[in-house]
Design a protein around this nucleic acid. Structure first.
Lengths: 233, 233
DNA sequence: TTGACAGGCGTACACCGTACACCTACGGTT
DNA sequence: AACCGTAGGTGTACGGTGTACGCCTGTCAA
């Protein structure tokens, strides 16, 4: 009966992964469970296991999905520009999917999609005149930054439900902090251009990311120029 | 009765944390559970909660313990040397406690111990002539490498229980790999000096770490020399 | 002697991933 | 038309997790 109440669309690997990505987008990766995902799909938990082997493989698949959102590599004369674009494009997708950071960090299996991305990046270095040897090391040096994220040194819980400390408590804490961690306080205030009220407010992650990325790329270029090699002689 | 069968030594926060570190050392962080830890201490699970608030706080404490194993900062004329020593000392302890990598990555709360370490590092940059502004950014650029580890691009499961693929299967896989990921294959063989049989064997992590660290430190020094600042004008 | 309290115990709950057996509907073969 | 293999959704159950809550007991100060 085509005109009756529409039957639930059948599951498929893609539908499962898509729903998982959407769910992780809204509740985070640590709240994503097979049971909740099943419920979201109007299905019993075990039904999922007909489409993914287990939860690990599910997360692998989710990572593949978001990696698929990275802009395909565009041909560029300049290796530096090519790498930079690619990585910043990757960054855009992990910003869209904040859980991807943890997911990628925790991943141990390298899926073909992951390998393909790394391969394309390696290819850019090679095309730019990097030796296989040097390419290898700069890929390591890039590390997780190739996926468009850097570790968050300070992640603020910013828990609004927590009871706000009284002003004098705040003052006391600030005083103790200033005594024990003067340099951190100093650079934190520098980061906010001296606006003390915004000290806890987090950093400009995009700036920090590009700063570090460019620093590395500069270093890479220098090593390439001077024909760096790991073999002594 | 002092001479009778010795009563179990009473629990304490330190004893709990010490046992947790030892347990994680032997079974890994993901196998560490409150129940198992309690059993190790000859105690009922809930007894632990009299000494740590919850599991998160337990892990925070464990991280603090291992950070305590880092060599105290020694006075050095050269900022570069000071930072390098400190970070490599940190690396020694995370190599001793492999689980610390994941633990630190997953941590969100910054304990005083963590802050103290970061503060001492920041202090080294400041003493070396870095502006607060620049210090801030280089700390971000250093990222998790300040804890002595870099992300593992390829972690091999190296599962010995998995059925070994037949030689022809292996050959077929290698051929497909070579076609799809030529650059990865190329740099992997470069890493083993052309010894194809060792391609899957992993990289020299220590070398990669120092390579990346020195690359960053070089970059930092250059920025310091030229009086880099994030403010335009 | 008393009574507060620190610290270990036992039970119980909600949640997790997933093994296993079952059912049911569909597509191709005879 | 009868059959049957199989893909895919269901239900139940098991062993694991973190931890809330109440109890009980030994220690020590008043």
């Amino acid at each position: 009966m085509t005109g009756g109440t529409a039957r639930r669309a059948p599951l498929s690997r893609d539908r499962v992964l898509g729903a998982a990505v959407a769910l992780a987008d809204s509740v985070g990766i640590e709240a994503l469970s097979m049971r909740q995902l099943a419920q979201e799909l109007g299905v019993v938990p075990m039904a999922l296991y007909k489409h993914v082997a287990n939860k690990d493989e599910l997360v692998d698949g989710m990572v593949d999905v978001v990696l698929g959102e990275i802009d395909p590599a565009a041909p560029t004369a300049d290796w530096r520009d090519a790498v930079r674009r690619r990585v910043l494009s990757a960054r855009e997708v992990v910003v869209r999917h904040p859980w991807a950071r943890k997911a990628i960090e925790s991943r141990t299996r390298r899926t073909p999609t992951v390998l393909a991305y790394m391969d394309s990046l390696a290819g850019m270095f090679r095309a730019g005149g990097f030796s296989p040897d040097l390419t290898h090391h700069v890929m390591h040096a890039l590390g997780n930054r190739m996926w468009g994220f850097s570790p968050e040194l300070f992640e603020e819980p910013r828990d609004p439900s927590a009871p706000a400390p009284s002003p004098e408590q705040q003052e006391a804490m600030a005083a103790e902090f200033a005594e024990r961690f003067p340099h951190i306080l100093e650079i934190a205030t520098a980061a906010t251009s001296g606006d003390l009220s915004r000290v806890g407010g987090g950093c400009d992650e995009q700036f920090e990311f590009e700063f570090a990325l460019d620093l590395m790329l500069d270093g890479f270029e220098r090593l390439r120029e001077q024909g760096w090699t790991s073999r002594r002689g």
